[in-house]
């Protein structure tokens, strides 16, 4: 089990966590737990209730969606420093994709309901966290648009 201080160090080494206020890092470290996943371990199945948000510390996760007659298609990989399951911030919802570790991975995982309650009650936490989440989501949106363009197609 990683202690509190080492979790903060881990957060500080991530793209997502490094620009959060120290109090926010502190709070997230308290709210979450560090979890480790083996290669090929499925963290969340598409269609299941998505109840956690995570910050990937190391390793790699793949987000896959099942396409009939084509099988699972990887639409995005989550790299260290990025977040996954961010929609749990808004409400408990069905997972839109399967999350699988493609290599041994470690993440700080925060239970969605706990995080939502903390954000509602602690405005400083919300003011610090939301811009970072929006930045991650915006980056992913821009990348998705480029994927839609199928730039390398003839």
């Amino acid at each position: 089990m990683d202690d509190h201080a080492s979790v903060i160090v881990m957060l500080n080494n991530t793209w997502f966590g490094s620009e959060l206020a120290p109090e926010t890092q502190e709070r997230l470290a308290k709210l979450g737990t560090v979890q480790e996943f083996e290669a090929d371990e499925i963290i969340l199945h598409e269609g299941e209730e998505a109840i956690e948000m995570g910050i990937l510390i190391s390793g790699r996760l793949a987000l896959r969606q099942m396409v009939p007659e084509r099988g699972p298609v990887t639409i995005l990989s989550v790299e260290p420093g990025d977040i996954f399951g961010w929609s749990a911030i808004l409400a408990a919802t069905k997972a839109q994709s399967t999350v699988v570790a493609t290599e041994p991975s470690k993440a700080l995982v925060i239970e969605g309901a706990t995080l939502r309650a903390a954000l509602k009650e602690d405005h400083a936490l919300a003011a610090s966290l939301y811009p970072r989440v929006l930045s991650a989501v915006g980056r992913r949106l821009r990348a998705t648009r480029l994927q839609l363009l199928d730039l390398f197609a003839r």
């Binding site: 793209w15 793949a62 099988g71 298609v73 990989s77 290599e103 990348a143 480029l146 994927q147």
Partner: peptide, 25 residues
């Protein structure tokens, strides 16, 4: 390296090339 799309046998990165350095510091 990254690819725009892949099947489950691909263990590398998936996403457009800018995702490789968007988080670079």
């Amino acid at each position: 390296v990254t690819v725009d799309r892949a099947g489950p046998e691909w263990k590398g990165r998936v996403g457009v090339v800018t995702t490789l350095f968007d988080m670079m510091s």
